[in-house]
Write a protein that binds this DNA or RNA. Sequence first.
DNA 1: GCTTATGTATATATCACAGATACATAAGCA
DNA 2: TGCTTATGTATCTGTGATATATACATAAGC
Lengths: 142, 142
Amino acid sequence: MASTNVQFSVATHIMTALGDHYGEHCTSTFLAESVHTTPSFVRKSISKLVKAGLVIATRGNVGYCLLSRPPAKINLLDIYRASEAPATFEMHNYPVEKTCRTSTNIKKIMGNVLSKAQSGFEEELAAITLADLVAQVRARSK
Amino acid sequence: MASTNVQFSVATHIMTALGDHYGEHCTSTFLAESVHTTPSFVRKSISKLVKAGLVIATRGNVGYCLLSRPPAKINLLDIYRASEAPATFEMHNYPVEKTCRTSTNIKKIMGNVLSKAQSGFEEELAAITLADLVAQVRARSK
DNA sequence: GCTTATGTATATATCACAGATACATAAGCA
DNA sequence: TGCTTATGTATCTGTGATATATACATAAGC
């Protein structure tokens, strides 16, 4: 499954589990079992969430993770940005053919297009909170 | 530059060049020179545009490409779909941990999230026509 | 049938990614 | 103080998607 970026979905999975257990202490081993992948991969993902200020992790003998604020105050755009997933699409990087005005200008123009499309993507994410996801998990497991 | 998908930006580059030369006959060699990559790669991209009905290509001694309809009647979502670029993000595909309700339900829930975000992305693309891009190219080359 | 275009199949090189390992760091506790 | 057990991180490897290169099939004008 290499080469399809799953950073965002793994980060969201971790955050949802932390949200479902909000107030409790979770270990990275527990989270790795929930995602069902290796602890090293999960820890790398958690590390980004900690750096983004979404998760607090303590170290030492009784280390644990917990959300830094309530699930209702975290949205999916926060998680998306924290996960450092690559941009949805890249402009190609071929040299410019100076005799062609399309070639001369397309990179700048396409850059604007991609940035707009990315904004559309991000607006949808910003509208969904972690609390929404936790509620859905709980509703489905009844 | 492998592993970052540039299908969409290459397809848009080709379409913009065809739009700028709307009414004329363009060869794949000309288009390859504009994009500044290999003819085989460009031809593969054109082939998808032809299958999607956006471009007409004739073969034989005087083969050429042209848009099937005016640039104002083609939007970037048409091109995006034709380029067969992969989805912006994939859900991870790890096994389900049955003892965890987050793990049990996250795939379905996250599927909805990604589909919403994808829609936001696509709506922005649908709002931009090829004629817009051609106009920008012309404005910038003055 | 020669030329020159598009169309496509196949092989190769590269690169980002997940996965694995090893070890550093940190803090509670005996 | 040192043992234990947690997180943090650096590094290497295997894999797969991608762009690229090559070769050849197909098609149509002349």
